[in-house]
């Protein structure tokens, strides 16, 4: 582990209208590690995740204050462009959401959008590489031009990961990426996460304690909009500092 600080969240408060969803969150995320966010439903995990690539901008009533420093620069700064930010911080959603286009076009969408490639060959290369990274290439190489919506759920989710990787992000956010998948597909995604962390910083929201324990280096436990504690996954699971964390891990809060 390199122990290099990639992302630092400082005193973050988030409001939906009058309702506060996050209270004074402080969290550090290390480069090329997997950090998992756990906690009961509605505690603000997705909200926190969306703050990292400003998807919250889409929610009109959502207001944030505090800092989110990516490589020591505040992403909410007026000079920061959300488009450039989202190129650096990719996102995979809970429900697989491939575009109603071919598999190839799904992956090619980002690079084309941002003009990252200068020729067809380059683009082909990026697409194949991304599909390979997400472990999907071998399964779909004969039908790259079939609709992405025709794949199975797990394949669709890996397609979405490939699509995010094609933009060459530094951070990958995953919001319960396995909750709509069966155990076999879940296992594949978990293996994939383990491989991807060689190159990417990953933040994953998960509902499953086992998953957090299996895939992540660090874990942050949230409760009702507050960050209760965070640290190395091993420590959190074996020796939680807070009663609430312990209750949750042992299944008393759910």
């Amino acid at each position: 582990m390199t122990e290099q600080l990639k992302l630092s969240i400082k005193n973050l408060n988030v409001f939906y209208g009058d309702k506060q969803a996050l209270y004074n969150i402080n969290l550090n995320i290390m480069e090329k590690e997997v950090t998992s966010l756990i906690g009961p439903s509605g505690c603000g995990k997705s909200t926190l995740l969306k703050c990292i690539n400003r998807m919250n901008d889409l929610v009109e009533i959502c207001k944030t204050d505090g800092q989110v420093l990516l490589d020591s620069k505040d992403i909410n700064d007026a000079s920061q462009d959300p488009v450039l930010l989202r190129m650096k911080v990719g996102m995979v959603f809970q429900k697989p959401n491939p575009f109603p286009k071919s598999i190839y076009d799904n992956v090619a969408f980002g690079p084309t959008l941002h003009g990252m490639t200068n020729s067809k060959e380059e683009l082909d290369h990026v697409v194949i590489e991304s599909l390979s990274k997400s472990g999907l290439y071998d399964e779909v190489k004969d039908r790259l031009f079939d609709p992405g919506t025709g794949l199975s759920g797990g394949q669709q989710q890996r397609l979405c990961i490939a699509r995010a990787l094609a933009v060459n992000p530094e951070i990958l956010l995953m919001d319960e990426p396995c909750s709509a998948l069966d155990p076999i597909a879940t296992a594949k995604i978990e293996d994939l996460i383990a491989e991807l962390k060689e190159q990417y910083t990953i933040v994953i929201v998960t509902h499953s304690m086992q998953q957090a324990a299996r895939v992540s280096d660090r874990t942050a436990y949230m409760h009702m909009g507050e960050l209760i504690e965070s640290g190395l996954t091993k420590t959190i699971f074996s020796n939680p500092q807070h009663q609430k964390t312990q209750d949750y891990i042992t299944g008393r809060i759910g």
Binding site: N53, M55, L58, P82, V83, L84, L85, R86, M87, G90, M91, F93, K95, N97, P98, F99, P100, F109, G110, L113, H114, C160, R163, A164, V167
Partner: peptide, 18 residues
């Protein structure tokens, strides 16, 4: 139109107009 598709595009850095 399913919002998940629009979200995916925005998540990849497409602007609202795009």
């Amino acid at each position: 139109v399913p919002p998940s598709i629009e979200e995916a595009a925005i998540g990849l850095g497409a602007s609202k107009v795009q």
